[in-house]
Nucleic acid binder design. Sequence first.
RNA 1: GCCAAAGUAGCUCAGUGGUAGAGCAGCUCCCUCGUAAUGAGCAGGUCGUGAGUCCGAUUCUCACCUUUGGCUCCA
Length: 578
Amino acid sequence: MEKSEKLAMIRHSMAHVMAEAVLEIFPDAQIAIGPSIENGFYYDFDLPRTLTEADLLDITERMKAIINSDRKFVRSVVSRDEAKEVFKNQKYKLELIDSIPEGEEVSLYNQGAFTDLCRGPHVESTKDLNADAFKLLSVAGAYWRGDEKRPMLQRIYGTAWENPKELRLYLDHLADIEKRDHRKLGKELDLFSLHEEAGPGLVYWHPRGARIRQVIEDFWRKEHYENGYEMVYTPHVGKSWLWETSGHLGFYKDSMYPPMEMDNMDYYTKPMNCPFHIMIYQNSKKSYRDLPCRWAELGTVYRYEKAGALHGLMRVRGFTQDDAHLFVTPDQMEDEIIEVLRFSLHMLHSFGFNEIHAYISTKPEKSVGDVEKWNAATEALKKAVEKEGLKYDIDEGGGAFYGPKIDLKIKDAIGREWQLSTVQFDFNLPERFGLTFVDKDGVEKQPYMIHRALLGSIERFFGVLLEHYAGAFPPWLAPEQVAIIPVAEVANDYAKEIERKLRKDGIRTVSDLSNERMNAKIRKAQQMKIPYMLILGEKEMGAGTVSVRYRNGKQAFGLSYDAFLAEIKAKIESKEQL
RNA sequence: GCCAAAGUAGCUCAGUGGUAGAGCAGCUCCCUCGUAAUGAGCAGGUCGUGAGUCCGAUUCUCACCUUUGGCUCCA
């Protein structure tokens, strides 16, 4: 048996054991569902009162007792009526029984005092579970069937493994995630802040964070120019006419900031940049000779995200998309898609993301645009992905109503997936705005329009980068690349001299002339995760050299200034991690 | 928006029905030091906001705001 199947069985069985334990404490509890999930399991309950930390300990102890009592998991197949009789006091189970398709058999699993409606499979006996290889993690609210109109249940999350060692590894992994939390690092490294009193979900970039953002944006612009894009700038607000035409006021209004009234007109802050880029397109009549238009903008947009959805930099209300729109002829479409994908991968690789997975989403049932276009676009997406040799999954029918898309997800340093790039066809806006170009044959035709963002949003991308590197940015991104640390006051002038030279040579440098001890300065620089420290004392002054302490603790003594400069420049140039 | 927890000094946190404390950071002084914290002193808080109970509320109650973990949605 595959390990993943075995773990799923263990976790699913754990969920049943947990349900039994909960029922021991709350005999009248209504039980909902309890599946295995990635890394663990959960079970949803409708309970007479809110669970506390103490309850979790109590449940844990009871679970251990159940596991150690060697109860068999016994499967039985019953009729619907029999099942309904068994669960006559369990309204959620009754609903589930009714939702089982006709013809599918209804099975129960029983262990000890607990019987659950369940497809299985399960381990043979509770003794196949390890009482020291699970942990209940948290209680959270969850709607019955994920529907916010239905009752809110209490969900207990747990993690379960084959043995205590695996559990330990997983708990260490959770601790690692916590250590890398971009909100924590953002504070520690003085990169950004959010201010509840000034508006939730709005980001303030501090000098050190802004430095990194600047490096990202400069690189982004340079690459875009090199790859045939032009930059545009567009306004932050637009009259309601624009959003009515685009359809946003019809489909997207709930996610937009409310209107501002001026001169009897409603103005909306933009939740997307597309209508503005379309205005530029429409400013003049386009010939096939003008296409493709590749227009990019670091466009700051505002969206009303539900309060509960806000999360650090990952989910905010104001953010900057690294947006671009491509207006292309049908002939150009395929090559352009291949090119966009190649470009995306190049960008992601540059930032140190090398494990990339593609997800193609195809035509949903309700859609606009004719089938031929959908097919051509979808084929182009597949071709592009295959050409790059990317692993990909297809989400059949998972596209937006207005066009198919590719999403790229990267894996970070600790194996978590993040969606960054997205390439999205749009058959809707060209129609709504009546976009055309004059083809060779003199006939006006509709161009293909492609939205794409490579990094997604700068805020979110920054958050992902921060967690990926755990704050220890590679030299090319580090807000401060060199910290100069004089051993004692006598070396301060020499420190200033070296700082001036480095700054002049384009190296981001700070020097610490405070009257702390050298050790304290090193500690400070180390905590700020500055990649290079130059320790300058009488020896260096005398010889006109520098001594380097690298972020990883290694040291090099007596380097000439030029040798050090060459070394750091090479690192920056290569974008390597130190 | 819903469920739960939380909000005390710039940060991390302790604490109490009789208007608060630590460490770090900050400031001052001392130290001038060779690879992760020299030492001493000072200053810093209307205890998230508003109401209620009470002789008295940071502490108890309620409402609101915000944050966190989830649900939903997504970049």
